[in-house]
Computed example of a mutant assay.
Amino acid sequence: MSFSLPRRRDALAILAAATLPRPALANDLRVATVDWSVLETLIALGITPVAAPELLQFREVAVEPVIPAGVTDLGLRGTVNFELLLLSRPELIYSSSFYVSSEPRLTRIAPVERFSIYVPSRPPYEPAAAMMRAIGARLGRSDEAERYIAETEVEFAGLRERLKPHAARPVIPINLGDARHFRVFGADSMFGEVLKRLGLANAWTEATSYSAMAPVGIEALARIPDAWIALIPPVPPGALDVLAASTFWNALPSMRTGRVLQLASINPFGGLPAARRFARLLSEALLTERAHG
């Protein structure tokens, strides 16, 4: 096996990481991941990986679960730092279908196990639950996995009951690309799956690929006048200011009747923890609007 020596700043990062608390390993197995949905699943099961990518960005986009100290940041998800990964000494690396091209290099470091949650035209909730069960079984956390899945179902059932007064109106979950375009999440997205499990309809009924469609012109929102618009970060700088001054935007029925919800950031390609975060944030926003209305 041949790798170039780590750059000085990478070596310093490893030395700094060595002073932090050692990650809690499952079955004495050192686990790393290059995928965020796996990362949040591991942490939800009480397993701290030795290394994972883009941790600063994860904290901004996914927000939760909280990343414990001692996890080495591997840099960008698409181009992880293989030297840092090697120095983290993983005995198992978890990947996903998004990172198949990296697997030849990953397998030179440690065995790789891959999951495929997001597949065109296939809802991702059950695959995410299956991934949690598989990781739990592999790493001695089967009880924790079953408990988390059961708690998720209980939480959804409770929210579904509280949201019954909102069931008559559909919801369209979107990311703004700019002031004129958005990305919309369809039935094969985790957001779409959560809407269904909360007893809410997804206002976007057209086909999507890998969960979403983009770019979609803002004028498409006029075709769903009864919908709640759920704006999910990131929001491009200045986009909301431009929309606030837009005659078209302000004329939309959803805007005129106060049915635009600005949610906090959520990982759109996450696992069950992301699903629960979206369910909670959306429900809180809908229930707050109803209370004020």
Score class of each variant (00 low, 15 high):
residue 182 F to A: 14
residue 178 D to H: 03
residue 186 G to K: 05
residue 92 L to C: 06
residue 179 A to D: 07
residue 63 V to G: 09
residue 104 P to R: 09
residue 97 S to N: 15
residue 66 V to M: 02
residue 49 P to C: 07
residue 185 F to H: 05
residue 276 R to I: 08
residue 78 G to S: 14
residue 271 G to R: 15
residue 256 R to A: 15
residue 185 F to P: 01
residue 209 S to W: 02
residue 9 R to A: 08
residue 144 E to P: 03
residue 162 R to F: 00
residue 190 M to G: 15
residue 245 A to D: 07
residue 24 A to Q: 13
residue 27 N to R: 15
residue 289 E to Y: 07
residue 110 A to G: 07
residue 170 P to N: 03
residue 162 R to C: 02
residue 154 V to K: 13
residue 145 A to Q: 09
residue 30 R to P: 06
residue 187 A to W: 02
residue 149 I to V: 07
residue 248 F to H: 02
residue 257 T to M: 14
residue 224 I to A: 04
residue 276 R to H: 06
residue 129 A to L: 08
residue 4 S to P: 11
residue 112 V to W: 01
residue 125 Y to H: 10
residue 76 L to R: 12
residue 174 I to R: 13
residue 2 S to K: 10
residue 22 R to G: 14
residue 221 L to M: 12
residue 219 E to F: 10
residue 59 R to M: 02
residue 242 V to E: 13
residue 261 L to P: 00
residue 104 P to H: 05
residue 205 T to I: 04
residue 159 L to M: 03
residue 282 L to I: 14
residue 199 G to P: 01
residue 43 I to M: 06
residue 287 L to G: 10
residue 191 F to E: 09
residue 118 Y to S: 10
residue 54 E to V: 00
residue 48 T to M: 02
residue 31 V to K: 02
residue 22 R to D: 11
residue 167 A to W: 01
residue 112 V to N: 01
residue 66 V to K: 09
residue 233 P to M: 14
residue 157 A to T: 06
residue 208 T to E: 11
residue 86 L to N: 13
residue 118 Y to G: 09
residue 259 R to Q: 07
residue 21 P to T: 08
residue 283 S to P: 04
residue 280 R to Y: 10
residue 198 L to R: 12
residue 50 V to F: 00
residue 188 D to F: 02
residue 22 R to N: 07
residue 13 A to W: 00
residue 6 P to A: 14
residue 16 A to L: 07
residue 148 Y to K: 15
residue 31 V to E: 05
residue 111 P to H: 00
residue 153 E to G: 08
residue 283 S to N: 08
residue 273 P to G: 15
residue 12 L to S: 14
residue 248 F to Q: 02
residue 227 A to D: 06
residue 19 T to L: 10
residue 183 R to L: 05
residue 248 F to W: 01
residue 154 V to E: 04
residue 240 L to C: 06
residue 40 E to C: 06
residue 137 A to K: 08
residue 181 H to Y: 09
residue 9 R to E: 07
residue 240 L to A: 13
residue 85 L to V: 09
residue 147 R to L: 06
residue 246 S to D: 00
residue 92 L to Y: 04
residue 254 S to A: 15
residue 189 S to A: 08
residue 253 P to W: 06
residue 109 I to M: 04
residue 10 D to I: 01
residue 241 D to K: 03
residue 258 G to T: 05
residue 279 A to W: 03
residue 42 L to S: 09
residue 212 A to V: 01
residue 103 E to P: 03
residue 98 F to N: 12
residue 191 F to T: 11
residue 56 L to W: 00
residue 258 G to W: 00
residue 36 W to E: 08
residue 129 A to Y: 02
residue 22 R to H: 12
residue 45 L to N: 05
residue 141 R to M: 03
residue 52 A to D: 02
residue 22 R to F: 10
